[in-house]
């Protein structure tokens, strides 16, 4: 298997071939029931792209996102992230990939409760082995960049939804990832705040060249992206312009 590319920087950041995902559920009545969620998904995403993945609920977009984020393993097919075959990576290497290469932003923010914004942002660095003082310095710098410099000592429940999502974005960015995976990042936010958050993503993509993959079911959010992948019943039905 040609898992190593001659020049990984020239190769696509994400290369997915015939990815399938089947969940096995033992419902206790008629034994194991298999339900396939993804069918032969193939996808290339280059560095610096801003891609929106759309689809109705149950279309498999969240499953695809989990696979891309190395949070789950495919049933079959291949996934190369930055030129490395993810299937060949051990648990610890996957954790390292999630720590170094990918930054996650979730719909529900997923901040650690009863921890200050600063500590939340600094936590990935803790797992990267960065010292405490340096971690806090970098975390504070990122909070300032997202306009939350004055909220470093606040806990998530003291912040508004938009502020919490900014903290989450800061956390995603703290280890200088190449890829940001955002799973309905504006799903819990009002229109105005959604616009502000999307502006942050747009700026990160434009100014720092960070690859962004965004899952959404709102057309006006998807409109911020430069490329649209539409899923239906576990299959890619559109891959191209945003206006489709």
């Amino acid at each position: 298997m040609a898992s190593v590319q001659p020049d990984s920087s020239a190769a696509p950041l994400i290369r997915v071939e015939n990815l399938c995902k089947t969940y096995s559920l033992d419902n206790g009545i008629n034994g194991t029931v298999n339900s396939q969620v993804l069918y032969d998904v193939s996808l290339n995403i280059n560095r610096g792209e801003f891609v929106a993945i759309m689809g109705h609920s149950g279309s498999g977009k969240s499953t695809l996102m989990n696979l891309l984020g190395c949070l789950d393993t495919p049933s079959s097919g291949h996934y190369w992230l930055a030129g490395r075959d993810v299937a060949a990576l051990a648990e610890n290497e996957l954790a390292r990939v999630r720590n170094h290469t990918i930054g996650f932003v979730f719909q529900g923010f997923n901040l650690l409760k009863r921890m200050t914004a600063l500590d939340n942002v600094a936590t990935p660095l803790l797992y990267a082995g960065v010292g405490r003082a340096e971690s806090r310095r970098r975390a504070l710098e990122l909070l300032r960049q997202t306009g939350l410099g004055n909220f470093a000592a606040y806990q998530p429940n003291q912040l508004s939804g938009g502020q919490q999502q900014r903290v989450a974005i800061s956390r995603a960015l703290v280890n200088n990832p190449q890829l940001i995976l955002a799973d309905e990042p504006t799903g819990n936010l009002d229109t105005q705040t959604s616009g502000e958050i999307m502006a942050v993503f747009e700026r990160l993509n434009r100014e720092q060249g960070i690859t962004i993959v965004l899952v959404t079911h709102e057309n006006d959010i998807a409109a911020y992206a430069h490329r649209l992948v539409r899923l239906k019943d576990g299959r890619v039905v559109h891959d191209g312009g945003v206006t489709a």
Partner: peptide
């Protein structure tokens, strides 16, 4: 459990 999931997503390995 959710906290553990978050920690894993942001890079905690099993040993941590």
């Amino acid at each position: 459990t959710r906290e553990i999931g978050i920690r894993m997503a942001i890079g905690a390995n099993r040993r941590a």
